[in-house]
Amino acid sequence: MTRICEGRVVIVTGAGRGIGREHALEFARQGAKVVVNDLGTGRDGGGRSGAPALAVVEEIQALGGYAVANCDDVADWDGAARLVKMAVSAYGRLDVLVNNAGFLRDRMLVSMTEHEWDEVIRVHLKGHFLPLRHAAAHWRERSKAGERVEARVINTSSGAGLLGSVGQGNYSAAKGGIATLTQVAAAELARYGVTVNAIAPAARTRMTEEVFAGEMARPDTGFDPMDPANVAPLVAWLGSTESGHVTGRVFEVEGGRISLATGWAHGPGVDRGARWDAAEVGEAVSRLMAEAPDPEPVYGASGGPGGPGAE
């Protein structure tokens, strides 16, 4: 059987449970050497334990694969630096970074505290930037030394980041930021042989178990559309050398379905050729709205879809 990530060195953050764990296991099955990063916190982000990361390492080793555990905080500058250094120290280099770590602090905006906002932005958005920043420096150094780099970054956005989600203003803002960070990083890092893509997964995890509690395996086929393992094959392929022509993209993945998300784009416009009179703006906006398609509804809004998936 062809193993599409044979010999590649992969970091997966938040890999102790859920979608991240499935990423780590799938990369190992595809021949990669894996750095399993997880703080081992509770569902609410409290506490720390090395047990979840070590358990995944043991699973990979039982499969005959190679893995090491890392319990650094990816939203801390020095912690993210140590994570990248661990991969290089253990296996000689880094080829793939999968940013997946995160948690929720759901609240309506009128009730959300500053701490709940800051913590979610820190863990998701800063927790994507810092490992990416240190990994990018590693790849730039290798590229400038004349090495042919075929590196991959796979970020984790969400349907909430693409469309918004009622009661998840902090999470939606962080995940939307991750989607645009992905596009910027793809443009900036291409010169060093790095592709950067993102996924917006829907699956059953600690963060979404209540949302998808009623989604079970289909009795006729046994296929569970909310199994987090469904997400991993796409991520493993994006981490392989086969995906070098794909960058700056966001993929939605749920069950057996993969779709390519399309984001903001320039729509219809009107140019007056001079400064607008405020009284005339309303008519112009009405014409533009009549020409443009209706926006996708926000998750959880009246008439909108249910809650989005998360890692």
Rank of each mutant, 00 (worst) to 15 (best):
A81I: 03
G244T: 03
R140V: 03
G176A: 15
D73Y: 11
G159R: 11
H266K: 05
I121P: 08
D271K: 12
G164D: 15
A24C: 05
V184G: 10
G263Q: 00
T113W: 02
L260D: 00
A290K: 14
G159F: 14
A186V: 10
H23P: 02
D294F: 12
A135K: 01
A198Y: 04
K175W: 11
R21V: 01
A284H: 07
R152A: 10
F129V: 03
S172R: 15
V10H: 12
V9G: 12
T113A: 01
D277Y: 12
M207R: 07
A160T: 14
P268G: 05
H23I: 08
E141S: 01
R21C: 08
A101S: 04
V194K: 06
N170G: 09
T262E: 04
S172D: 13
R43C: 08
A279C: 00
A145G: 14
A265E: 06
M226F: 10
L288W: 10
H115C: 06
G255D: 01
P305W: 08
R3V: 12
S302H: 14
W264A: 07
Y91S: 05
Y299W: 15
A284P: 12
A310F: 11
C5R: 07
R43K: 05
V35W: 04
V211F: 13
V35F: 03
L288I: 08
G307K: 14
G282A: 08
G176F: 12
A32H: 06
A261C: 02
V270Q: 15
E296S: 01
R140W: 00
V231A: 06
A203M: 07
V36E: 01
A67G: 00
D277T: 08
K33F: 09
D38P: 04
S302V: 14
S240Y: 05
G127F: 05
E119C: 08
W264S: 07
V153C: 14
N100T: 02
G193V: 02
V246K: 06
L238I: 11
R107D: 15
G16H: 06
M216V: 15
V149M: 03
A173W: 09
V211C: 10
L125C: 08
E58S: 04
G46D: 11
W264C: 02
P233K: 01
L39Y: 09
R17P: 03
I4W: 12
V270Y: 04
A236G: 11
T195I: 08
D220P: 00
A186G: 12
T247Y: 01
V34L: 07
R152P: 11
A15V: 13
E215D: 14
A217G: 10
Y299Q: 05
D271Q: 03
H128D: 10
T208V: 11
G169H: 08
G102F: 04
P52R: 10
A292H: 03
P225R: 13
N37D: 00
N100K: 05
P308K: 12
P228K: 02
R105E: 09
E116D: 15
G256A: 05
H138M: 09
A69R: 02
H134P: 00
L54P: 01
A135D: 00
K126R: 05
L162K: 13
S89V: 04
A203L: 04
A55V: 09
F129I: 10
V270F: 10
L83M: 02
G161Y: 11
N155R: 07
L39N: 12
R204G: 02
R206V: 12
C71T: 14
